[in-house]
């Protein structure tokens, strides 16, 4: 076990060092690349902390999709930065504040009971009634399904907000070359399989709608990059439907089961598993579509042309 502790300490130090390096990097591109590395290292740390589901989600969404979003924005704004620098007294003051807050939190953390109380007993006792065998999936889609519905709503709200920030059409970017197109042709189907597998695996082992959705979202981002798919104004209705499907099915099922003696979100025992799988499948597709739309960053329509004409 000691060897693993050495590894843990090294990884923990690497995390702290990387976090500092991300924010101290001169070049923004380098900062984003370091940030993606940081995300993957975080995922590794979470595997060590027996949280493989979260590690998958962090690697796929926290590092992968977020990294793609950051790089796309970096290219769009051309790396322009404000040249403002923070005056030294402010730097010292904020540094002292951050140090005080962090050490206060550290003291609170050290004083907290190690391996303290939790809900694992309650989860285990009710797992049979939840309809799925994997505890994290049971929490996400049954015990705390209300939170998960609202989390999908947050994604939906983000698309509405991003679309509402009207944007001019982007300057055309050069294609990435023949190798990229060839790669996309092989990788797309493979990644679709991986995404579907993660979704399917979620009922019994680490994986699930969010991880699967993120991989499928990455597929869509890849397709956008390779110009295998070009969003057109005519596709708007479909896109809207894809964003909404997850929230709509989830909300309707949640409310639909809530009549008579049952509460909202209280699936009938016999139907629990099929209903959860249905919700997960649709939510996966919605997450994929939403993440791709967030990457694309604007509504595919001639709204930008209007903006151009107005000035």
């Amino acid at each position: 076990m000691d060897a693993m502790l050495v590894f843990d300490v090294a990884l923990a130090l690497a995390l702290v060092g990387l976090a500092w390096a991300v924010l101290a990097a001169e070049d923004l591109f380098a900062a984003v690349v370091l940030f993606i590395v940081f995300g993957l290292m975080t995922a590794l740390a979470w595997v060590r902390l027996a949280a493989p589901d979260v590690a998958l989600a962090e690697a796929a969404i926290g590092a992968g999709v977020t990294g793609a979003l950051l790089l796309a924005t970096l290219r769009r704004i051309g790396g322009a930065e404000s040249a403002e620098t923070t005056p030294r007294p402010v730097l010292i003051g904020v540094g002292a504040l951050a140090a005080a807050v962090t050490s206060g939190l550290g003291a609170a953390f050290l004083a907290a009971p190690a391996q303290g109380p939790g809900l694992e007993a309650a989860i285990a006792a009710n797992l049979a009634a939840s309809g799925v065998e994997h505890p994290v999936t049971a929490v996400l889609l049954n015990y705390r399904a209300y939170d998960t519905l609202m989390e999908v709503v947050v994604l939906f709200a983000a698309v509405v907000a991003v679309w509402s920030v009207a944007q001019a059409p982007e300057p055309a970017t050069p294609l990435l070359g023949p190798l990229h197109a060839g790669f996309a042709r092989v990788a797309l189907p493979a990644a679709v399989v991986v995404g579907a597998y993660l979704l399917w695996a979620g009922a019994t082992m680490p994986g699930g709608a969010f991880q699967g959705g993120a991989v499928l979202g990455a597929v869509a981002i890849l397709a956008l990059l390779a110009r295998d798919y070009v969003p057109a104004p005519a596709h708007r209705a479909w896109a809207r439907g894809a964003f909404l499907a997850g929230t709509a099915v989830f909300a309707l099922v949640a409310a639909g089961v809530g009549f008579g003696p049952r509460m909202a979100f209280e699936y009938p025992p016999a139907l629990a598993k099929p209903l959860i799988l249905l919700i997960e499948a649709v939510v996966t597709l919605s997450i994929a579509a939403t993440l791709a739309a967030l990457f694309f960053g604007r509504e595919p329509e001639p709204l930008g042309v209007e903006v151009e004409a107005r000035k």
């Binding site: 979260v54 989600a57 809900l119 694992e120 505890p135 994290v136 929490v139 996400l140 998960t148």
Partner: peptide, 11 residues
């Protein structure tokens, strides 16, 4: 491990 915080962090 306790699954509840895992679900919270995914959220």
């Amino acid at each position: 491990a306790d699954a509840v915080p895992h679900a919270l962090v995914i959220t």
